[in-house]
């Protein structure tokens, strides 16, 4: 019987885990341990609902409601000096509970602090675009749409950014295999030569360890290369490697090692 592979997460898995292995946790500190973060959190929680908050590896993490995101970021930008949105994207939790986790990484240059705002949305829901607050979210949201299929409301140009416009599938979903699906495998052939060329060009060779013993054209006969269609007998002459014909070339002098000067120290 074939081993069961889950369909909702086709990424590489650890092939062996100790039965009693308990993964340790990255330590989380309470927000009150840092006065600057504590003040920020207080200001935010006075106006918005904060579900959870802690400090992890020098970053404050705050979980909020999805509907508040625009207002929270606006408040942070205008009142709390978080002037830059350095990064935003999503994490795919579809296999676990059908949600996406969205994170916004904020930087305050005056306070030298970084805060991460997070929330969960259901699969199929859209987030509110913060493109009006931070222009950089324009591209980040497009990238998120491209990679996860999460749309942003009120975005001026909600189209794919990294993949071609006519691409199918969202590559960073856990259900999408690393090597791509059927559509991805034939994308360029279909587009350039048409479907009927598939047979002539053949499927992609993705096995990195593949060596064809009878292949007389590729690397299997390194040093003993033979032209296409030759019958391989097994006692071929080694290939002579040279960049010039034996008898010399018309009007081209050959490099002579003995009469050349070799410099030891390149920087002289």
């Amino acid at each position: 019987m074939r081993a069961y592979t889950p369909k909702d997460d086709v990424q590489a898995k650890a092939y062996y885990t100790d039965r009693f292995y308990v993964a340790p946790q990255v330590p989380k500190q309470d927000v009150s341990t840092d006065p600057v973060f504590a003040a920020d959190l207080e200001a935010i929680s006075a106006k918005f609902e904060v579900k959870e908050s802690f400090i992890q590896v020098e970053n404050m993490v705050i979980y909020i409601n999805a509907k508040d995101i625009y207002a929270v970021l606006e408040f942070m930008r205008d009142s709390l000096e978080y002037t830059q949105l350095t990064e935003m994207s999503a994490i795919d939790w579809l296999a676990k509970d059908d949600t996406f986790e969205i994170f916004y990484q904020m930087l305050s240059m005056n306070k030298r602090k970084r805060t991460r705002i997070k929330f969960f949305i259901k699969n199929g829901d859209a987030v509110d675009s913060v493109e009006k607050l931070f222009r950089c979210a324009d591209w980040s949201e497009r990238e998120m749409f491209d990679m996860f299929g999460i749309e942003a409301n009120n975005h001026p140009f909600m189209k794919r950014i990294l993949m071609p416009y006519d691409w199918q599938g969202n590559p960073l979903l856990k259900t999408y295999p690393l090597e791509g699906d059927e559509f991805a495998a034939w994308y360029e052939i279909d587009k350039i030569y048409g479907k009927e060329a598939r047979e002539a060009i053949g499927p992609e060779i993705r096995d990195t360890a593949r060596v064809d013993r009878y292949d007389s054209e590729r690397f299997a006969r390194l040093g003993y290369e033979q032209p296409k269609g030759t019958k391989i007998t097994g006692n071929e002459e080694p290939t002579v490697q040279s960049y010039q014909e034996e008898g010399g070339v018309f009007m081209v002098t050959k490099f002579d090692k003995d009469t050349s000067k070799i410099i030891d120290d390149p920087q002289r």
Binding site: M163, P171, L178, G180, E204
Partner: peptide, 18 residues
């Protein structure tokens, strides 16, 4: 030549396919 280390959905596995 072959797609190299990028054995992913986004790379053409060798430009000799085109």
């Amino acid at each position: 030549n072959t797609g190299g280390m990028f054995n992913t959905y986004a790379t053409v596995q060798g430009c000799d396919r085109i």
